[in-house]
Design a protein around this nucleic acid. Structure first.
Lengths: 160, 160
DNA sequence: TGAAAAATGTCAGTGATGGTCAAAGGGGGG
DNA sequence: CCCCCCTTTGACCATCACTGACATTTTTCA
């Protein structure tokens, strides 16, 4: 039932866990050969599974002896995230919210229940509000982002 | 006489009972083929027989290697919440929300933190959305009630 | 210096899933 | 016999995985 994507994700994840500094450096081409897939598949995995909303930063360099470095972001403060929200209000997708909450849960800022509660408010509840005059797109993203912001501020007040 | 719907229901139910964790993962298309019916028939069975109100949670993923996962949840003393949900279309004032959350907290359905989170989403966040074209009044109350509904459904799925 | 080689990035397209909704079908009670 | 409610279907939509062609950046070496 696992897709290639899932398999590669777990592979990279394991590399990171086993590294001392939560960083791993790979070569896109090599990894693609190992899994016998298109090189761009690796980019797909990185984009969907190792985004900032999931708590990772990816840097890379092209050309000879190029590489891709994946780093797990250590967070001890939520303020930067709130600031980020305010800046990219209109672009915040449902999947971003989901990823972010999963990250906060992994890092023990919130419990699993709290995470589910927040997802219910921002994803399920806002899925069908066309009839309330809130069309999908930027406007709904903004609303979602406002709700998330207030909830995060609440979390912030608790500390870790 | 059993309808196809009933047959599929019993089939899935048996899968769940026989699983160690009361969870089963299927593929909609495959199951539909086995029973030689339209894929959407599976959705019908899930919606009518495996709803939260009957004690089940259904998650799914689309696209390649997609799946549908059905999980049985233990439920205790959920009647009051179900009763309240049935009237979710009612207009909810801020004070109504506050009262309800305080009650849920007193009855130990939710923790204090969860209560605060919910208030942040439904009171604080919605107090600052004038600029998004959601004026105070009926419309905002309705939005609030949608959010509450989904959050309560979530609480419901936890049991007590 | 500059062309070739060696990497990675981007993006749109394709196929594989599952979701939604309105309408048609069917069976039992009044 | 008709009506209502539950079932069943099909057309159309949304999302995810994966690929290949083409672009970009960096190094190497003649």
């Amino acid at each position: 039932m696992y897709s290639l994507c899932d398999t590669i994700e777990r592979y990279i994840m394991r590399l990171i866990e086993n590294s001392p500094d939560q960083v791993v450096t790979i070569q896109r081409g090599k990894l693609a050969s190992e899994f016998d897939c298109a090189p761009s598949q690796i980019n797909y995995v990185l984009a969907t599974r190792f985004s900032v909303f999931r708590g990772f930063i990816v840097e890379s360099r092209r050309g000879g002896s190029g590489y891709v470095r994946i780093r797990k972001i250590p967070i001890d403060r939520i303020e930067p995230i709130v600031a980020y929200l305010e800046e990219y209000e209109r672009q915040l997708k449902e999947s971003d919210v989901e990823d972010l909450l999963n990250w906060l849960e992994r890092e023990n800022f919130i419990t699993h229940r709290e995470s589910e509660l927040m997802k219910a408010a921002m994803i399920k509840a806002l899925a069908k509000v066309d009839d309330l005059g809130i069309p999908p797109g930027a406007e709904r993203n903004q609303l979602r982002s406002r709700i998330l912001r207030e909830m995060l501020l609440q979390v912030l007040s608790w500390g870790k």
